[in-house]
Structures are given as C-alpha cells and as structure tokens.
Design a protein around this nucleic acid. Structure first.
Length: 841
RNA sequence: GGGCGCUUAGCUCAGCGGAAGAGCGCUGCCUCGACACGGCAGAGGUCACUGGUUCAAUCCCAGUAGCGCCCA
C-alpha cells in the first residue's frame, strides 16, 4: 500500500477541488431507501436571497452543516435540503431599484418587454406579469450566488433537493395548505380595521410591527357639554376629531362619573358623542378622559368593537383624508371645516386642523411637546394608519385560549438548543392579541387561490368563494378562471372576480417541512422525513417562522413539525456592537474565504457557542487557518513511516497512553455533538489535537524514525490516531480532512463511521504516562528557553523529584523522554513533583 | 417599561461550588529529519459592582450598572 503524501501540502484550491468531487461522486446525495429511524432530517432555513450575502448568513448555516456532517458519520442518512426565500416585499423592492420599474396592475402584459441594461429613470410602470417575470430573473441570479457561496463553504447539502418559496411546487403546497385551513374553518375572511402601510398599500401583521419614537404634541381640546361648559381632552392626533365616535373615562374615575351617559359635542364639527365608561381608559393619562376615533390606535379598535360604536373612518387606504365630506358631520360649520382637510395626508391635516381649532378657540393653552411610540411597518417609513379592509386570517390562538394552550404545549415539547430560547417563544404566544393576518396587497407572492361570484346586480358575494380543486394547484386566479366559469365572464354580472391578494411570505415559509418533504405529492418521501429532526434558525424569527411552522403543522398534521430546534446567536461587528449595515456590506463572506480559506470561516462559525452572540473576529479565522495547516503537516509526519495499520503492533506504554487520552476525547466530542453542541465538540477535538502534535509527536518522533517493534508501535499508533483526529475534525474542517483522507484511505471521510470507543479495545494504556512525561518535557523546554538555547541543545542530566507512582509512570516512557529531552541521564528522587535540568556545556 | 442573554488577562472567549484557563496580541529564544502559513517559553486577572446562602462562591440567590436581542 502506497500513501500519496505530497511533499509540501497546501490548503490552496481545496475548496474547488473537493466541492467538485463531492458533487461528481454524490457524496451528500440523500438515499431515500432508508427508513425514518435511519434518517436525520433538517428543516433548513431558506435564506432571503434578495439581500446581500453577509456574515450572518454564513454563521448559522455552517453550524448546522457541522451537525449534519456528524449525523451522517454516525450512520444516519441525512436529509439536508436547501430552499430560497424569494417571495415578498424585499424582492419587489430590489426589482424596483435594480431595473427602475414599478408595478401597475392596471397595465396589460407586454410580451415584448425585456429587462433594461440600465435602470429606468424615472421608474417605468409595467404590468404585474412583466414585473413578476423580473422578480424571477433577479432571484435566480441571487440564488446562484448563494449556491456558489454554500458550495465554497462546504455545506453538505443535497443539491438535488432544492426549492424556492415562489416556485411552482411551493405555491402548490402553500395553496393546498390554505385551502385545507379554509375547509376546516381555520382560515377566514373578515372586514375589519387593519394596520395599514400607506406607502406599500398593504395590510401589516402583528409580527411585522415595530415601535419607533416620534416627536409629537399633546393638544388640549375643549368638547362641549349640553350646558356649554367644556370637557377637556388631551390628544396627539387632533386631525381625528372628525372621526370621533365617543368619549371614554374609567368607571372608577369620580371626576367624570356624572358625565358618563350624557352626550357632548365635538369642537369644530359639532358632532354629538356619547360619554361611556371603560376600564381601558387611563385616569393618569392626560385629563383622564379620551376621545375614541375610528381608528387612531389599537386601543380605539378595542373600544370601537367592545362598545359597538359607529364606524366613522376619515383616512383612506391611500393615506389621505377622504374627499367626500362624511355624512355624520351635519352642521354647516362642521362641513366647512372638513372640506379644509379633504385629501390631505394626516400630518398636513394635523397642522391645518390645529390652526382651525385655535382660531375657533377650541384649544386650551399651548401644545405640549411629547415623545411617544408610534407603530411602523418594520420596512416602512411612515407611521401605520388603521383602515377598514377585508382580509384573510388564520386562527393562531390569539383569540382562542384552547389553541393558545396547545401552541404553548407544543413549544414546551420541543427540544430547544439552547434551552433559554424557549422563553422567547412562550412570551410571544402569550402576547398574541389577534389571529394571523395572511393576506397582503402585493404582487410577488403566492396568490390566494380563490374567486368570488359576481351577482346579477353586480355585487360581489364574498361569503361564498369559488374554490379550485387541489389537483389544479397552483392557480393564479387573476389569469385562470374558476371551475365552471370561462374567462369571458370575469368581472361581469353572473361571472366572477379573482381575489386580488397574495399571501404573507410566512404563510408559505411556515410550510418548509411540507415543501421540502413533498407533502401529498410524494407521500413515500414525506413519511420518511417528517416530522423532521432539527429546525435550525435565527433568534429573531422565533415569533414568525418558528411559531407559524409549528401552527401550520399542528393544524394540518396534529403534530409538531420537528423534534428539536437550535437557535443560533446574533452576529456582532468586531467592536461587539450590533452589525451595522455599512460594516455588513464591507465584510462579505467570499473575499474572506479567499483570504483565510473556507475552513477558517467555518472554524470561526463553529467556535460560536449555540445561541451565543458572536463577533466577527479575523483573529479567530486566522487560528482556524493555522489549525487546518497543522492538520496537513501533522498528517504528513504521521504518514511518513511504515504503512502498518496492525493494531497488535501498538505495544509501547507511551503510545497506549496517547490512545487513552484520545478515547476520552472521542467520548467527550460525541457527547457534545449528540446535544448539537458543535462548538464544544470542536474545542475538545482541537485541544486534544494540539496536545497530540506538541507533546506526543515530539516524544514519539525519535522512536518513529527507527525500525523494529517499538518503532512499528509508533507507526501504527500515529496512523490510528490520525484516522481518529481526521474524523473528529471532519465536521468542522471538511476540506482538509477529506484531502488528507484521500492520501491513504478509500472513499470519503464524510461517509466514514464516526470514531467508536470499540476501535480502542485492547489498546488503552495508562494516560498518566503521557501526562507526566509531557510535564517533564515541558520543564526541560523551559530550562532551555531560560538559557536561550535551542530545543535541540543536549542536556547533561535531568533530575526528577516525584512520588514513586509518578516515577514509575515516567520510567515506562523513559526512552522517549530521554530522546525528546536530548539527555542520556534521568534520575529520580522522592518528593513533590519538581524537575531540575543541567544543560551540557 | 417588560422578558431573555451577556459582563472572566490589552483583545476574542472557555470554565460555572472546592488552589483562575485557552488562543490572539506582547516579550524572549529557536530554522531541529511534519510544520517559519512554524516551534518553545515567559509576563499579564480583587472572574462588572453591592449584598446574601455555604466550611468554601468566578460559579448559587437577590439587587445595581453597562451592552445586546426580542417585545410593549
């Protein structure tokens, strides 16, 4: 047997060499002949491809890959698909900027349209279908860039198992799941106040909200009692006075007890308003009595609903005040005042009405500046308004205690890594205050697969939607006709109209186990991989992706979609601040891979503890690179002798002591990986490996260069240890371990069995032999270092003060110690451990 | 304002009830038959702060402060 050990091994080119070889040899191809208990299935997060490639993307995926590689080596067939999250607003925005276009659904499809070389300026309006074509073109480029990055990083993904959340298969799964929710009554439509982004012209869900601090001002307005005396109200939104439906005060508030049940009139508009008691009114806030408008904030929605108040919306979905003067304003003065506000945006209307109120003497004192939290869409630039709109919802427990408890229990049953992340899920579920709004008034997404009949009088029958068959999915109701209708009757009396909306991106992403496992379309595959073993993901999407996936699986399958979930930490910039946009753009993974090598980036990612926030650290990457190089060089040394793999040859006490230490390392690394703790597994293997090179290799070196039985013991021990170390490090450093493996072994190290304790049977010596010998060697090195001489400098004598046990252990490896220390003489005296070194002249 | 996490050597982080650890950086030495994309050695810390529990606390408990994430 001839080993193919290069003279000067190098890391250069290993990524390209091995990623090609793995692809050609189907190293990571999923074998679906295996049964469920032989399979480890991973519900990989589909990265959002419309963003740039950044270090946050790399971090979690590499950690998951290390776990996947470990599982594969333990004999599991790993189902490790990759998806791309390409639907939704980020893609639309990117297409708008990249090509300089905007979607105008009223335009007809232009079959001649081709993507421009340069972005249009000003932006050119194009049809919905042309717009969606551009979304596909751009996301495909992005997906290729991601795949290249993942391959260069060595992710052991089965690249035949890929999906995109907008592809035909995902749309089919997403629409089928929705129709099942609809059939079971879990999905429902409702005309209701929704949080509305006026720029995106779309409803926004609870999970997408952020609060932002905004400067505002409290105006104290005078409403009038029947006797003409004022009731003072503090508000930051005086422009909503025309939308006012009532005043509310706390039931225990004695100041207003007499007023409750009476009627007051609003300033300027002179609308009659009931005064009502409600416990949500805060006596400490402002004057303690509040105006209820439809709708200024979410509390208004609660009051409006619970008190059954009239609906008086003034802000349209466009974000402007309605043009027509509302009919509930019946005084001439009031109608004149409203015309001043018509078609203004809220901030403009606020300035105008403030002036009008002031002129009319309705304002008390000066407005008082205040900083308050205002709700925004997380990607939006203007405050959300609340408008009335017909939307689709999925029940999630926000309005149902029993379902909420079920969702909490499912969370409790999951195996969370790290455990403390579970609390974040619990708090989110406990804080849900409404069902999940899934319809979005957008273009690039999975369409809601419904039509509605148009009655003969032209009205739309929203209560009896027309439903496609599951076989016909996916459908685009805006271009296909419902069963039993033809296209000619679209929009006509007696015909139909399409639901114009698409689903929330999470409504599809929440089905990644079903999409990847080909639910219903490939029942055989699905039963082999579902429920999955592991969902790895980021901490910030526990409330969205994790919760929604758990919900959909519970509703459809009555079970959790996975056995466990691992939550990775947050990436920080080198100053341990939150990763800033600018820094993130500077530090992209590919140039770093060029500079340090993929192994170095993987090493950095795997050094981050599960769930621990981790700073981008080039120093750690350098250490990773050094480790990879060390693997090459140490392997060259270990394989440089007689090619004996006979375990019976391993007889020397030092060699057997080394194997004892290695066995302990194997056991610790295995335990860590079994708990998904790739970081501890790496650290254990790494520390052991460095000790192996620093101490054992130096001690065994001289004997290894000789021949005879004691030399053969070293040769066999070196090769056995190397085989174990390569396998221990392979999950973290897949390229370099595979490279070395190829010098002397058949097949891929990644398809070789993880080291087993049984391999060490009959070979384990007393570990203290190596420990004490290394201590004495270290003392000799220290003496030489202090004397500023070479480590090769001869030593006249070494005197070891030690207990009888320690001395006995040292004697068992005395030949190796003498050779490594360069001495002919080691003497032992009884006493506490101490080493005296006399250097030769 | 609430929840969760973090705070250990100049830096990045392990350790988490029984005499403070690693790597980087720094200093010094060493080109010796795996490795200068090296090796060896050395210096460097009232384990954020204040209380408490314990024979014993970096580790457990309570509080304070700073940082981060999630949410109001």
């Amino acid at each position: 047997m001839t080993d193919l050990v290069p003279k000067k091994p190098s890391l250069d080119g290993l990524e390209a060499k091995w990623s090609e070889r793995w692809e050609a040899e189907h190293t990571y191809r999923f074998d679906r002949a295996k049964t469920r208990d032989e399979i480890f299935s991973i519900d990989t997060p589909p990265p959002t491809v419309s963003g740039s490639l950044h270090m946050g993307s790399v971090f979690g995926y590499v950690q998951t890959d290390a776990i996947a590689r470990y599982q594969r080596m333990t004999g599991k067939e790993v189902f490790y698909p990759m998806g791309w999250d390409d639907n939704g607003l980020p893609t639309e925005r990117r297409v708008q900027n990249f090509y300089g276009v905007r979607c105008d659904p009223s335009l007809p499809h232009d079959p001649e349209f081709a993507p421009p070389q340069e972005p249009y300026d000003p932006p050119r309006p194009i049809s919905r279908r042309n717009f969606i074509d551009l979304c596909h073109i751009l996301t495909e480029e992005d997906e290729q860039a991601f795949e290249h990055l993942w391959r260069t990083l060595g992710l052991s993904v089965d690249w035949t198992q890929t999906y995109a959340t907008i592809d035909r298969h995902s749309r089919r799964v997403s629409q089928r799941a929705f129709l099942r929710n609809l059939a079971r009554g879990e999905a429902y439509a409702q005309e209701a106040p929704v949080l509305w982004d006026v720029d995106f012209q779309s409803a926004v869900a609870q999970a997408e909200l952020v609060d932002k601090e905004r400067q505002g001002a409290f105006y104290r307005l005078a409403f009038r009692r029947p006797d003409g005396t004022p009731v003072h109200i503090d508000t930051t939104r005086p422009e909503l006075v025309p939308a006012c439906a009532a005043l509310v005060a706390h039931p225990d508030d004695e100041r207003y007890a007499a007023l409750v049940g009476s009627t007051v009139r609003s300033p300027l508009f002179d609308v009659a308003l009931p005064v009502i008691a409600h416990p949500l009114a805060e006596p400490d806030k402002g004057t303690g009595i509040a105006m209820v408008c439809t709708w200024g904030d979410l509390t208004d929605v609660v009051w409006w609903r619970e008190l059954d108040l009239p609906t008086r919306p003034v802000i349209e979905p466009t974000g402007r005040f309605r043009a027509a003067t509302p009919d509930w304003i019946d005084s001439e003065e009031g109608r004149t005042a409203y015309r001043e506000l018509a078609e203004l945006f809220p901030n403009q209307a606020r300035r105008r009405i403030a002036a009008l109120l002031d002129e009319g003497g309705h304002v008390v004192g000066e407005p008082r500046p205040v900083t308050h939290a205002v709700k925004f869409y997380e990607k939006g630039d203007r405050p959300l308004e609340i408008v009335s709109s017909r939307q689709w919802y999925i029940r999630n427990g926000g309005r149902n205690e029993e379902l909420r408890r079920t969702m909490l229990n499912l969370g409790d049953e999951l195996d969370w890594v790290p455990d403390f992340m579970k609390v974040r899920y619990r708090h989110w579920v406990e804080g849900l205050n409404g069902d999940w709004l899934i319809s979005r008034q957008r273009f690039f997404g999975v369409p809601i697969p419904l039509w509605y009949p148009v009655r003969d009088d032209g009205g739309v029958d929203y209560d009896n939607p027309l439903i496609p068959t599951e076989e016909s999915l996916p459908v685009d109701p805006s271009s296909a006709a419902p069963p039993g209708y033809d296209e000619g009757s679209r929009g006509r009396p007696g015909g139909f109209i399409a639901d114009p909306d698409v689903m929330d991106t999470w409504a599809t992403s929440s089905l990644t186990p079903q999409i990847a496992g080909h639910w219903e379309d490939d029942v055989d595959l699905f039963t082999r991989v579902f429920p999955m073993d592991l969902r790895p993901q980021g901490p910030e999407i526990i409330r969205t992706w994790l919760f929604a996936t758990l919900l959909r699986s519970h509703l459809e399958h009555g079970s959790s979609p996975w056995a466990g979930t691992s939550i990775n930490g947050w990436i920080l910039d080198p100053d341990r601040k939150k990763m800033s946009k600018s820094f993130d753009n500077v530090v992209t993974p590919l140039p770093l891979i060029e500079e340090y090598g993929a192994e170095a980036i993987r090493y950095w990612a795997c050094k981050g503890r599960p769930g621990a926030d981790t700073a981008v650290d080039f120093g750690v990457m350098k250490i990773g690179r050094r480790l990879a190089i060390k693997v090459l060089n140490a392997s060259r040394f270990a394989l440089g002798f007689g090619a004996t793999d006979r375990k019976e040859d391993i007889t020397e006490p030092l060699d057997r002591a080394m194997l004892a230490a290695l066995l302990a390392t194997v056991e610790q690394a295995t335990a860590a990986f079994d708990e998904f703790d790739y970081a501890r597994a790496l650290e254990t293997a790494e520390r052991s490996f460095w000790q192996w090179t620093d101490d054992y290799l130096e001690l065994a070196k001289t004997r290894a260069y000789g021949d005879g039985a004691t030399s053969r013991s070293a040769h066999a021990a070196l090769r056995m240890a190397l085989s174990v170390y390569l396998r221990l490090l392979a999950p973290t450093l897949p390229f370099v371990c595979e490279e070395v493996w190829s010098w002397w072994r058949q097949g891929s190290v990644h398809r070789t069995a993880w080291p087993q304790p049984e391999e060490f049977a009959g070979l384990v010596g007393d570990p203290v032999v190596l420990e004490h010998t290394a201590e004495v060697l270290s003392a000799v090195r220290g003496a030489k270092s202090t004397a500023k001489v070479s480590m090769r400098a001869p030593v006249e004598s070494v005197t070891v003060s030690a207990s009888e046990e320690v001395a006995a252990a040292l004697r068992r490896a005395e030949g190796d110690l003498k050779a490594a220390a360069r001495t002919e003489s080691i003497e032992y005296v009884p006493g506490d451990l101490a080493v005296t070194v006399r250097l030769a002249q």
